[in-house]
Nucleic acid binder design. Structure first.
Lengths: 340, 340
DNA sequence: TTGTAGGCGTTATCAA
DNA sequence: TTGATAACGCCTACAA
C-alpha cells in the first residue's frame, strides 16, 4: 500500500510536531533558530522534518509577521527601450546586489501593457513587498498612485515630472554632466557649438540644456539650439538638418541623447560634412547607439549600477524607519570616443 | 481631534464590515464580485471601503486560496550577459505578455551571487508563486533542486545539461540553425570554412558545433574548429587569431555567437584581411553586436519573445493540471547582412 | 524548556 | 441574501 501519487499536501509545522511528538511552538522555535530547544527535541524535529519533507510557508509567515523581506522593482519602460537600453539591466543588478546584502528578495515587476498596470498595483497593495523601487515611472498612473496611497516605502530612479511627496528620488546630475561634456567639446577647439535639445518638457531635457548654456557662458547663442520633441534617432536627424540650414558654419554639436546624436551624424554626413573633422558630435547616455555610430560617440555614461544600488539603499533606510534624503544626485563619467 | 499621523494600520475586511454594518462574509462576497449582495449592502460597503481606505491583502487571500496567480521568472545569467544580451529582455517580455493575458503576475527573480541562490530557493518554496519559468539554469543548484523537490510546475528556457524529469523545456533548434547558416555560407562559395566554437560544455555550444559539422559533411575539418570557453568578444578575437595562424587560407568562419563573431572580425581585420571579401563571417543570436560590427553580421535570430511566451504557456498548462510536452523546440530565422 | 491558544486577513461552508 | 465559524500555516505571548 503506497501513498497516493497525486499531489500530496505539503507538510506543515503541525505535521512535523505530530511526527516529532512535540508541540507546534517548539517546532516553530527550532525552525527559527531560537534557543530553548532541547537536544532531544531538536533531534526529533530534524528527523521529522526530513521524513515529512517540511518546508516553511513564507506566505503564512509573512502574514503573521507583517513583513516580507522583499521589495518590488517596477520597470515601466516602453517595450523597445527595455530591450535595448543596457542601463536598465545595470540598474537592476545594482539594486539586487544591495538588497541581497541586506537579505532582501527583489521581485521585478514589468509593466508593459495597460493590463499590467492594474495587476501590478494590486500586487503591491497586497502586502507582498515591504517597499518598492520604481524606474521610469509615469507621473500619475495606478502604480504610483497606489504607492503614494499606501505610503509604501519607495525610491524612484529618475524624477517623474510632478512627482509627489514622501518618496526618495535618485537622479543623475544632468546639468553637471551636460556642462562637462560641452566644456570638453570646447576644449577640442570648437567655436560654434550648437545643441539638439530634446524633450524640454522633461526634467532631463531641460537640465541638459541648462548645463549646455552654463558651460558656454557668453558664447551661448540661442539660435544654435534646436529643440526636438523626443529622444529619438529621427528627431535628431531632422533637427540637425534644420540646424545646419540655419548655421552652416557650425563646428560642434551636443545632442541630448545618443539616439539623437546618431540621427544628427546621419544628417551631417548627408550634408557632405564629416565627423569629427568638420563637426564634432557628443551625445548622452552611452547607450547601444554610442557604439553603433561611425565614428563611435563621445558621450556621457550614466552610473547605472550606482543608481540601482542607491535606490535600494534608500528603500532599505525607509524600511528601517529612517527618513533618508529626498533626492540624491549622482555624477556621471564622460567617455571620449571618435566623434569629437 | 485628528487621527494620529503615525503609520495607521491598514483597514481590513473586518473594519469595512463594522463600518458598513454587515458581516465580513458579505464584504468578502462584494469584493470578489459575487452575486447575492443586495443593493443596500453594496452601497453601505462601497461607502465603508472608501471611508476606511480598504485595500485587500493578497497575502492573506493567497494563504487561504492556496494559490497566488503569480509565477516566478528566474534569470540565472552571468552578470555581464544579462546586461548586454537583448534576448533576455525579449524573453522576459514574451513571457510577461502571455502570463498577463492569463491574468497572472510575473515576478522576476535575479540570481547573481551565491547568496541569491538560497534566498530565491526559499522564496520559491515559500508558496509565493504557483509556478516558475527558469532561464539559463544551472544543472544542479539549490534553485533547480527546490523546484524539483517541490514539484513546482516549471518550464525551462534552454535545457540545462543533465536536467531532471517533470518539467518542460523550451529550446531553440541549435543544431538545425547552425547547419542552416553554415550551409548558407557554403552556398556563397566559401571552401575552407572554420568555426569558433564556444562553451562546448553547454548544450547550446555543443549543438552549434554539431550543426556545423553536419552541414559540412565530408568537408568538415577538425583542425578548423577553434574551441573557446565563453561566448565573449575577447574569446572570439583570441580564438580567431589562433585559427588564422593555423589556417591562413580560411575563407569563411562560423562564430558560435555574435559577440564571438565581432571579436573574430577584429582579428581578421588586424591580420590585414577584409570581411566579407577575404573571409565571410556569420554569427548567432542577432544580438546588439550584430548591428555594431562593420559590416553588419549575417546571423541567426532567436525567436526570443517566442521562447518566453512558450515557456509561459507551458507553466500555465501545468497549472491547469495538464501534462504538456516535455520539450518544445523552436525554429530560428537567418538574417543575412553584409558580413558574408 | 515546553505546550496552549489567540491572531494575522481572507475565503468558504452551512445554517438561518 | 446574509451571518457565524472554521480553516489556511505560522508566530508569540503566556502559563506551566
Amino acid at each position: 500500500m503506497t501513498t497516493k501519487p497525486t499531489r500530496s499536501k505539503r507538510a506543515t509545522v503541525h505535521d512535523v510536531a505530530l511526527e516529532a511528538g512535540v508541540s507546534r511552538g517548539t517546532v516553530s522555535r527550532y525552525v527559527n533558530g531560537e534557543r530553548y530547544v532541547s537536544a532531544a527535541a531538536r533531534e526529533a524535529i530534524e528527523a521529522a522534518i526530513a521524513k515529512v519533507g517540511y518546508v516553511p510557508n513564507t506566505a503564512a509567515r509573512n502574514l503573521v509577521m507583517q513583513r516580507t523581506q522583499a521589495v518590488g522593482f517596477i520597470v515601466h519602460e516602453p517595450h523597445s527601450l527595455f530591450v535595448e537600453d543596457p542601463n536598465i539591466g545595470e540598474i537592476l543588478l545594482g539594486a539586487n546586489t544591495r538588497l541581497s546584502e541586506a537579505d532582501h528578495q527583489m521581485a521585478v515587476l514589468i509593466v508593459d501593457t495597460e493590463r499590467d498596470t492594474d495587476r501590478v498595483a494590486r500586487y503591491l497593495s497586497g502586502g507582498l513587498v515591504d517597499g518598492v523601487i520604481i524606474v521610469s515611472a509615469r507621473a500619475d498612473d495606478p502604480v504610483t498612485r497606489v504607492v503614494d496611497r499606501l505610503r509604501l516605502p519607495a525610491a524612484y530612479v529618475g524624477h517623474p515630472p510632478g512627482a509627489a511627496g514622501s518618496a526618495s528620488f535618485v537622479v543623475i546630475d544632468n546639468v553637471g554632466a551636460a556642462a562637462s561634456i560641452t566644456r570638453r567639446l570646447m576644449e577640442t577647439g570648437r567655436r560654434r557649438i550648437g545643441m539638439i535639445a530634446a524633450a524640454l518638457d522633461r526634467d532631463s531635457g531641460a537640465d541638459r540644456l541648462s548645463g549646455f548654456r552654463e558651460a558656454l557662458g557668453d558664447a551661448f547663442d540661442e539660435a544654435l539650439v534646436e529643440p526636438v520633441p523626443l529622444y529619438s534617432y529621427s528627431a535628431g536627424r531632422d533637427g540637425m538638418r534644420r540646424l545646419l540650414d540655419r548655421a552652416p558654419d557650425l563646428d560642434g554639436v551636443f545632442a541630448a541623447s545618443d539616439a539623437v546624436a546618431a540621427g544628427a551624424i546621419e544628417a551631417i554626413k548627408e550634408s557632405g560634412r564629416s565627423v569629427p573633422d568638420d563637426i564634432g558630435v557628443v551625445g548622452f547616455d552611452d547607450s547601444a547607439w554610442a557604439q553603433r555610430t561611425t565614428p563611435a560617440l563621445s558621450t556621457v555614461r550614466q552610473p547605472a549600477a550606482g543608481l540601482g544600488a542607491e535606490a535600494a539603499r534608500l528603500v532599505l533606510a525607509r524600511l528601517r524607519g529612517d527618513e533618508p534624503a529626498t533626492e540624491v544626485r549622482l555624477d556621471c563619467d564622460i567617455v571620449w570616443r571618435g566623434s569629437a
